[in-house]
Design a protein around this nucleic acid. Structure first.
Lengths: 183, 183
DNA sequence: TTGCGCATGTAACCAGTTACATGATTTC
DNA sequence: GAAATCATGTAACTGGTTACATGCGCAA
């Protein structure tokens, strides 16, 4: 139930959707926009083992006719509970600063695990935190712009605009969930 | 000259601007938007040591009247060369996928180290790579949207919009450098 | 005189990287 | 029968995390 690595939760989220082998995961990380995660076996196989030791997944070696043997992992009820708990955590300011990717990952599987109602609530919380955080960055920039180089100012500006883009995205996404609810 | 950790280059960039102690660095990481870097001593002091072993910085213990002793680090010519080489590397597609933060960090100190002309060229390269990369993500989304949950689609959409925001930023920044050149 | 901020460090642990290693099956 | 792909693993290393540990100087 404790904090676990981002990779661990990504695996849990994927395996929640359907049982997967290490190689399946490798392909997903290599070929879909879930890049950012390494597709190296040295990352994936030990992480799956770890999840198994924790009792979050169980595995079974399959020897299907004509196919190579593969070890398929499926999520356990304990794993589901851990995944949901992680997704349900309140959003900390820290997460926004250090780990935007984690927040997006928490959200990515949320419809499936917690339902659309909860996804909407998550977005509202997210938008609220962003609205509070962005002005602190703007204030910093305004106060220090005069002593920064142009590239330094622009780099900071880029960071701020990233947050603004996320906020716009969140608002738009909220609207989409609301529209869907009405239908 | 080899690849070194992001933290290492961040330290090099900061120390390039002015000599710093470990505690100075800690404050910067804690109090400025250079968050994302841990301000824990267990991260900072060993990293500074490592840079010193590599010959990229040198340090000196200062005992100023009335003040606690502090070890101040300053960059060496070898450190400057390493910093510039890192900033000058061509932008790889991989960097865009895995390490946007690294690209922004390379740019953040660029005016000071390489000059505005080079900063402009970097932005042009960056914008070019983004323009090529974004459509591949869009195509993936279009092809797979029908089998994804709403939260899944939106999470991917969020990633794409982040890249679009960076591209808009880069174009706008290019215009700013150009305007400045004319003046 | 207590406690806070300055200031520097070490040690145990852990996750991920790179590289190595193996072997079956399918395709050309 | 060679090469590509499927498929799973291990081992050495490294960088960062958390937690611990120390001690000075200043202000209340």
């Amino acid at each position: 139930m404790k904090d676990y690595s981002l990779l661990g939760y990504a695996l849990l989220g994927l395996i929640y959707q359907q049982p997967l082998s290490g190689y399946d995961v490798k392909k997903i990380f290599a070929l879909t926009p879930m890049t950012g995660f390494s597709d190296s076996p040295g990352a994936i196989y030990p992480a799956l083992r770890k999840l198994e030791q924790l009792g979050f997944v169980r595995s079974e070696v399959q020897q299907l006719a004509g196919l190579r043997r593969r070890r398929a992992f499926e999520i356990t009820s304990k794993g589901v509970a851990s995944l949901k708990a992680w997704q349900n955590k309140p959003i900390a300011e820290e997460d926004m600063v250090r780990d935007m990717a984690e927040l997006l990952l928490r959200f990515a599987f949320m419809d499936e695990t917690l339902g659309e109602e909860r996804s909407l609530a998550f977005l509202q919380e997210f938008a609220g935190k962003l609205s509070a955080y962005i002005p602190t960055l703007r204030r910093y920039l305004d106060a220090h712009a005069s002593v920064m180089s142009m590239s330094g100012r622009l780099a900071l500006e880029s960071g701020i605009q990233e947050y603004e883009a996320r906020l716009a995205w969140a608002k738009n996404s909220i609207a989409r969930y609301r529209r869907r609810k009405k239908e």
